[in-house]
Structure formats: structure tokens, C-alpha cells
Amino acid sequence: MLRPFYRCLLRLHPPAFRERFADEMLSIFDHSEGIPAGVRLLADGLLSLLRQWTLRPEFWHELSPAQQPAPDGIPSFYTLDPFRPCASAVVHGLVLSTAVFCLTGFAIRYSWIHILHVRIPEVQFDSPRSIQTNSGSVPSASLETPTVPTRSENSASRDFPTSPRSAVHVSEPVSPSPLAIQNRAAQNTAAQSPTAGHPQSQVRSDAPRALEAAGRPKRAPAPESAKPSHLQSNALLPLERPIMLEPQIQPTKAQETTSATVLAVAGEVKLNAADRQRVIHAAVANLTKFTSIPTLPRGWPMGYWHTKRAAMTTRRQMAKSLPTF
């Protein structure tokens, strides 16, 4: 009764083992007497099946006599049978490949050691103007953020005192974009035209261009309703004909703060007390960001929290030491 089961178990063994020992194992089963002995042999065959498939991969396939080298060491010939991997090998490879892929992806995503810091640069529609500081030790925030496209024309008034360390020099771009050249030529044409100062034409210009315009003679300030804030306002430019406008980028809050910081440092904008306080806090945040803080080595689990806490403490202490307006 148990013989068919035992025979099925033998047929499930690896081919090399089955061809070599299956007949003898079946012969031993035939010599056993009684059901307990048959059950014991059945259990032994099941264990043998697991052992052969898990612990004996070297015996799954044996070289055919034609593939074995000749006794004198020189192979006589090799068979050119098409190689076809067995189904079990394909399944094992599939499972192993999937496991390795998942583990690698999981390790990259959730590893403590972040080796892949890829910073994607932001898209700029106009060539950035380089802003250099006199000291050069503290990098300005405008160097890492794109230029804010708008500012008020009357922001050239220098109400905010400029310290020698924070004086800003605006240099000409090395290679301005064709769009900027076209826009600048249109502005020059409009300035030389007899109908200059037309109040209806309002064109947004970027902050560096407004800084450049600060060198020109001051015009009458725009009404308060036309400039909702000093962070985003319109520059009144006399134009005779419409010019091609640059792509409008809605500035983010961080960019607005950065622009306000730059303009305040340059003395280009008049700030009230609250805005001045905010600008100072933004400057302190930038200083803290670029100040070297002792950190634990990367990969150490508490290194990130140590760095974060030290930065917050430094920022809080510097904010407390600042005067309030």
C-alpha cells in the first residue's frame, strides 16, 4: 500500500541520485516487512528528498561520460548538446534575483549611510548674476537660490544703512541669454524714446536688473496700491511698444525672504520693524546654515540628531542675542 508513495518520493529525487540509487532503495523497501517499517522508510525517503534538494546541489547533475576528459588528460571530444537549465534552477535563480533586488533597493532607501546625495539643480530662465561679498567668508543665500524676478523700482532708496562687510557688488553676467539681451535692448529703446514715462506700461523685471536700474536716476515712486509689498512689486518702465516678457516664476516664500535679505543688505529697500526683524532672522538662519558645526561621523545613528540639535541650539542662541526692534 505504501509502495506507490515511496516510489513517488524516489521519482522526486534529483535525476542523478534517482538513476543511481532508486532501484536499490526500492529493493530495500520491498524487503521490509510490516507497515511500521514501511512508514519508517517513507519518512526516511522524505528526509532524503529534502536533503538531496537542499544540501547536495553538487550531485544534482553529473558529467556524462562524453564530457569527461580522457584518461591521458586530453579531451577527445565534447558534446554539443543544447544546454537547457532545469525548471528548479530557473525557479531558484528567479527567487534569488528577486530577493537580492529587493534587499538592495530596501538598503538604498532606508540605509543610515546615505551615499546617494543627488541634488537636482533648479531650472533658471535667465542667466544668474553673480553677487560677490567683500569678505567672501560668508556665502550669500542668493548664490544657491535662483534670482527673484521682481522688485520695486523705488527700492533703490538707501534707507537701510549698509555696512562695509555686507556691501554687495553686482557684476555683469558673463554670457547673458538671448532673451535677456532682447529685453534689455527693448528697455534701452524705450528709455530713449520721446514718450518715455508712460504710466500704463508696467513690466516685471528681475532683482539684478532692478539693482542695475538703481544706478539710473530715480523716478517718482509708484503709488502704494501698485506695490503690495516690497518683496513683490512692479517696476515702472516707459515703453513705447510691448516687449517680449520673460517667463513669470512665482517666487516661493524662501525666495522672497532671500530676496528681501539681499535687498536689505544692499540697502535697496526700506523696511519696517517687523520686516527688518524677519530679514535679520533669515540672515541668522543662513549664517547658522553655513557655520561649521561639529558633527559625529555619518552612518552613526545619533549623528543626524546630534547635528540637528546643535544647529537648532546655535540658531536659538543667536536669535536671543539679537536686538528687537
Partner: peptide, 29 residues
Amino acid sequence: HGYAIMQEVARQSEGKYKLGPGTLYDNLQ
């Protein structure tokens, strides 16, 4: 042969150690 080896092992150990066919042919391999 295999069956004789199993019987001889049982005789040498006085029945205290019995080899099954799976273990026997795995070791013979």
C-alpha cells in the same frame, strides 16, 4: 550491497544504530 550494509551496521552496533536507505545512499554517494 546496500541492504547488506544496513544489516551489517545494525549487527555491529547491536541494534543501537540503524541506517535508513536515504542516509545510506547519501553517504555512499
